[in-house]
Amino acid sequence: MELSKESKDFIGRLQLYLMASGKKEKEIEEITEELKDHLLEAEQRGKSIEHVVGNSPKEYMEQFSREMILDKGMIFKVIPAICIGALAYLLMGEILDGGIELSLLEFIGYPVIFLIIIGLLSFFLRYISSHQPARWKEWLVYAVAGVLPMGSFGALIVLNNYFNTPTFEFSTVANVLAFALAAAVFIGLALWSKLWLPIIIPILLFVPEYLIGLTSLSTSTKLTLTSILIFAGPLIYFLTVYKKDHSSSA
C-alpha cells in the first residue's frame, strides 16, 4: 500500500517547513514517519488528507513548529564550520594559483577574527540558552552571528588593499603543508556533515582549472574552458545525484 500523491506531497512540504524553521533533523524525521503511518491507515479506510490535517496545512505546520525546539546548537556549529571551509577553500585556491602570498595584516587578521568570532558565538549561545531572551532579541543575535564572519572578512580584504604591509611568500614546503591542511579540512567537514559535498565541490572547482593550466593552450582558450568546466562540473554532479535519488526512491 502506497501513500497518495497528496499525502506524500504534504509530508514533503512539512519536512521542508520544519527544516527551514531550524528544527532538529531527528525530531523532524520522527514526526513525519508517524504522520506517514497515520495517513496510510487513514487512506486505507478511504479518508482524505483534509480529514487528517484540516483545511489549512500551514496552520497545521505551525502547530507542530510551536511544539518543537529550535536546534540552536546546529546554527552555532554550522557557522564556524562554514568559516573554516571558506578559509581552506581560499588557501587552496591561492596554492594552486602559484603559492600562498599573505600580507602581515592578513596573517594576523584571519586568526584574530577567527578567535573573536568563536568567542562571541559561544557567548551568544550561552546567553540565549540561559536568559531565554525575547524572540526579537534572539533573532537579532542570530543575525549578528550570521553577518559578523562575512563582514569582518570583507573588512579585512578592504583594509588589506588600503594599507601596504610586508608580504610573505610561502615556501614550497609551507605550500605543501597548507595544501594538506586544507585537504584535511575538506575531508573533516565531509565526515562531520556526512556529505560528500565538501570534498567533491573543491575537486570539481580546482582540478579542471589546474589541469587546464598545465596544457599549452592559449590563455583565452584556457579561460573559456575553465569557466565552462566550473559550471558544468557541479551541474553534472548535482544532476547525477538527483537522478540517483529519484530512481532509488521510486
Binding site: 504522520l35 487528517v52 507542530f64 510551536r66 511544539e67 518543537m68
Partner: peptide
C-alpha cells in the same frame, strides 16, 4: 481533526 493530536503528543 485527526492530525491535531500529534503536536499535542509531541508536547
Amino acid at each position: 481533526k485527526e492530525g491535531s493530536i500529534y503536536p499535542l503528543l509531541l508536547r
